[in-house]
């Protein structure tokens, strides 16, 4: 859609989109390149799928915000050309919750790694899912804390070697689709970074979904996880994904555990409708105050200005 006032960028006054560059490069902050990610890392594939999903969704890009925490995936917020917050370790979801609740017109997307999201930030993850907060959470799960040098995370498969489990991981890992499902998420999908078209489609669906949507993408950490576990390079891992991913839409999330170099279920596991947190708040308040209840209702001077 072209803007009648022929403005250069997307226009607030007319609400229409100018002829904006919606290529992948056009949605990234190219002045910040090169990025910090290693060759063979899967984060870039997920970012590419994300911007492609935004383009396909037709959503107004200025009404999408990206929040991330700390770690390799935490850097996504700095590279995508959206309103973006690079917050603290584990706290992307509560920051996103505040951003969304303060400005419900926004679609807020959280990019988070497995350690960030389910280790230090695990409590926020389950509570946002429980509330069916209208957020899209994308977890880049590479089974490792990359930024700090390859330590064990809550998703590292049992037996895998990490710098803090040098004799093999003896903990039981989380299965994130199962965790999200149990906590109350209303959209859950899992792919590997090989499945770039599926990731795009799932993120697009997640962006359109009302409620807590969760997309997990299994990715290779070439520098740390692969090397330490002698699993070859990025290409070898994509081959492993090709040979061991089992597509099963609607799978029971109890079956989604991942063993070391074992088979992995991928697909869209959960999609259900349920009132979001804000739907529930608004319904309660409308019952209390009346139908003219409006969260952040306009102030008298604003109403006055509108009349004029």
């Amino acid at each position: 859609m072209s803007c009648p006032s022929s403005c250069e960028t997307s226009c607030q006054s007319c609400g229409s989109e100018a002829d904006e560059d919606t290529s992948v490069a056009g949605m990234l902050r190219m002045e910040r390149m090169p990025h910090i990610w290693c060759p063979g890392c899967g984060i870039g594939s997920v970012v590419t799928s994300f911007v492609e999903a935004v383009r396909r969704s037709g959503l107004n890009r200025d009404k999408i915000a990206v929040v991330s925490g700390i770690g390799c995936t935490g850097r996504v917020a700095g590279y995508v050309d959206f309103d973006s917050i690079h917050s603290t370790h584990g706290r992307a979801i509560p920051v996103a919750t505040g951003l969304h609740l303060a400005n419900p017109d926004l679609k807020v997307v959280v990019f988070s790694g497995d350690g960030d999201l389910t280790g230090i930030g695990g409590n926020h993850f389950i509570h946002a899912a429980r509330r069916n907060m209208n957020l899209t959470v994308i977890c880049v799960n590479n089974f490792t804390y990359g930024m700090t040098g390859g330590q064990v995370t809550p998703t590292t498969p049992a037996g895998a070697n990490a710098s803090t489990t040098p004799y093999g991981n003896y903990e039981y890992p989380f299965s994130l689709p199962f965790l999200a499902d149990a906590a109350g998420a209303t959209y859950i999908a899992r792919w590997t970074s090989l499945h770039s078209r599926n990731i795009t489609q799932s993120i697009e669906e997640a962006l359109q979904h009302r409620g807590f949507s969760f997309v997990e993408v299994i990715t290779p950490c070439t520098t740390l996880y692969l090397r330490r576990n002698r699993l070859g390079d990025g290409v070898d891992t994509l081959q492993y994904y090709q040979d061991n991913s089992i597509l099963k839409h609607g799978a029971d999330t109890r079956e989604t555990a991942i063993d070391f170099q074992g088979k992995m279920l991928v697909g869209k596991f959960v999609e259900r409708q349920k009132p979001t947190y804000l739907d529930a708040v608004n319904a309660t308040c409308a019952r209390l105050i009346g139908d003219d209840y409006q969260l952040y209702g306009k102030t008298p001077p604003e109403k006055e200005a509108e009349k004029k």
Binding site: S87, R91, T97, L99, A102, H124
Partner: peptide, 30 residues
Amino acid sequence: PEVGALFIQMEDELASIAALIGAAWGGQKV
């Protein structure tokens, strides 16, 4: 509700203060 404000009880204080940062950049006084 009568003021059109939003109150949320977060899961802990870490989340409370983080939510304020998001909400402030979302345009609200927090």
